[in-house]
Design a protein around this nucleic acid. Structure first.
Length: 320
DNA sequence: AAATCCGACAACCGCATCGGA
DNA sequence: TTCCGATGCGGTTGTCGGATT
């Protein structure tokens, strides 16, 4: 059908060998997969792009049936769109870590939810009017996650946190891809590598449980007494209720928590489950920090890396 | 109903590299 | 060694269909 070189092979159609080859590779090839990218595939793309940048063909090698063109389009139409709305560069460290902190946890959640046989999924973050991005809407398996609304106020109101600042630790940034990250990620769990978050011992309590927008703390108290608040919330006891326990006994999710999640991701995922027990805790972003709110909308505490590790550890996710 | 906007995706373009004559 | 066509790759544009005004 197609000849090589600049040859018109179809009357009315200027098809060169090159364009024919391209069409074959991107469209006609029998093993090309159709349809929206799954959460797993999106996760792989996000992770591999963080590692390799715009190496579309290389990324495509890890997504059987997907073309580099398709991945490139996905990145431009969905990922870069989020970055534009946040007024940050899609390749910036800030955006990469926003993806790690908010988007990837959501995809993990989607994957876990899809794998779960539970009839009734746990309450999600969207129950908090502030936050749509982190918890999923339950119907987003193949749609682009929406993180921008959750992050918009952060992007608009708060300068990009400098490394080492307390804002930095509230929404961990400047996370470089792990050099030991696996390239054999044929499974989603293998594709997601833990981010090198600051060690618990490296931070003081105020760093980890700070709240840049202190006016929301209990009506405007400013920096909180983290220990006292966490204690008062019963987070030490981690009584998140039977629904959450049931959900997180799901082996698939625990696998992800064990092997894949960043600390923040684990925290997001865990907290997004809400549950009974000590009350329903939903996340929203305020001034750069993840903030837990109770269902009355009253901010009761901030929760960051230490709590995430603690939660994940106590729930069997000791790997993070 | 028509116009406009917007997202998704196929296709095009230019450049770099490879490999055979 | 050089030339040249084929191939690979990433950036960009064009087109189409659905949603919105």
């Amino acid at each position: 059908m197609c000849a090589s070189g600049v040859v018109v092979v179809v009357p009315g159609l200027k098809r060169t060998g090159k364009s024919c080859r391209l069409r074959w590779l991107n469209y006609l090839k029998p093993d090309i997969r159709r349809g929206n990218l799954t959460a797993e595939e999106q996760l792989v793309i996000l992770e591999l792009h963080a590692k390799w940048g715009n190496r579309w063909s290389r990324i495509a090698q890890h997504l059987p049936g997907r073309t580099d063109n398709e991945i490139k389009n996905y990145w431009r139409t969905r990922v870069q769109k989020q970055a534009r709305q946040l007024k940050v560069d899609a390749n910036s460290t800030v955006f990469r870590d926003a993806v790690r902190s908010y988007w990837m946890p959501r995809l993990l959640h989607d994957m876990a939810a899809a794998a779960s046989s539970m009839a009734a999924p746990p309450p999600l973050m969207q129950q908090n009017g502030h936050c749509h991005g982190g918890g999923g809407d339950g119907s987003s398996q193949s749609q682009s996650p929406v993180i921008s609304d959750q992050l918009q106020e952060t992007a608009n109101d708060v300068p990009v946190p400098a490394r080492g600042s307390y804002e930095y630790y509230c929404c961990p940034v400047a996370v470089e891809p792990s050099p030991s990250a696996s390239t054999s990620g044929s499974t989603p769990a293998a594709a997601v590598q833990p981010a090198p978050v600051p060690c618990f011992s490296e931070l003081n309590w105020d760093d980890q449980y700070c709240h840049p927008g202190g006016d929301e703390i209990d009506g405007g108290a400013g920096p909180l007494d983290s220990m006292a608040l966490l204690g008062s919330l019963g987070l030490d006891g981690l009584d998140l209720g039977p629904a959450a326990e049931s959900f997180y006994s799901d082996a698939t999710l625990l696998d992800y928590l064990n092997s894949s999640c960043t600390a923040t991701a684990a925290m997001n995922t865990i907290m997004s489950a809400g549950g009974g027990g000590g009350g329903n805790y939903y996340n929203h972003c305020a001034g750069g920090g993840m903030v837990e709110s109770d269902h009355h909308g009253t901010t009761t505490a901030t929760c960051q890396l230490g709590t995430a590790r603690k939660l994940a550890g106590e729930w069997g996710g000791g790997g993070i």
